[in-house]
Amino acid sequence: MVEKQINIGWSKTEMAQNVAMDIPDGSYVNLGIGMPEMVADFVPEGRELIYQTENGLLGMGAVPIAGQEDPELINAGKKPVTTIPGACFFHHADSFTMIRGGHIDVCVLGAMQISKQGDLANWSTGAANAIPAVGGAMDLVAGVKRILVITQHNTKDGKPKILNQCSYPLTGKGVVESIYTNLAIIDVKDEGLYVRKLGPNVDFEYLQKHTEAKLYQ
């Protein structure tokens, strides 16, 4: 007898949708490389967001039509992009004046580990043979008003990513506002981690079992 498979939690696109819902109209937004980039595809109708990419563009548009790519018009992930009408270019010191100076409203980042205090580790496992690379992540978490994290709830081998303490080197301490995983949306508060919404077919006990840090309802 074949058991009917029950899908547990949200898909990646649904996770991106969850994040997009929480970004208000008129926000200046910086999206990290990878899954965070998907958020741009799910902005609810009627909202206008302006995307900043730290390599010097405010008003980043969609992916160009094949054959129309300009190797000198790229995003922080070094992929070809376009500009919206009303976009502007600037140099790196101005770009990080926007970021570090608190002018960007929201930044969406991926994560390797997050602690119950909102510490984020997303640049290095600290392994001796790894080539360390940090990019703009430390400046973003230090300066952007709201840091939202989008990540699978657990590592590929099932280990928890939401921990009491990060074991990897930090990107920033106490910087994460909310965590959007495939299993839940979790807000980081002074008193601890509060579950705002559970994914489809996820109950609180299941979520806690897959999370090292204590969760509150």
């Binding site: 730290e54 140099h91 790196h92 010191a93 770009s95 990080f96 970021i99 570090r100 043979n129 080539i131 360390p132 690379a133 940090v134 990019g135 703009g136 992540a137 430390m138 400046d139 300066g143």
Partner: peptide
């Protein structure tokens, strides 16, 4: 780098920009 033949000073991107500025 892994062969120990080149040195690396890793700097956050915004810090790199500001150090140059």
């Amino acid at each position: 780098y892994n062969a120990g033949e080149i040195e690396l000073e890793l700097v956050p991107q915004g810090t790199l920009a500001e150090r140059i500025r």
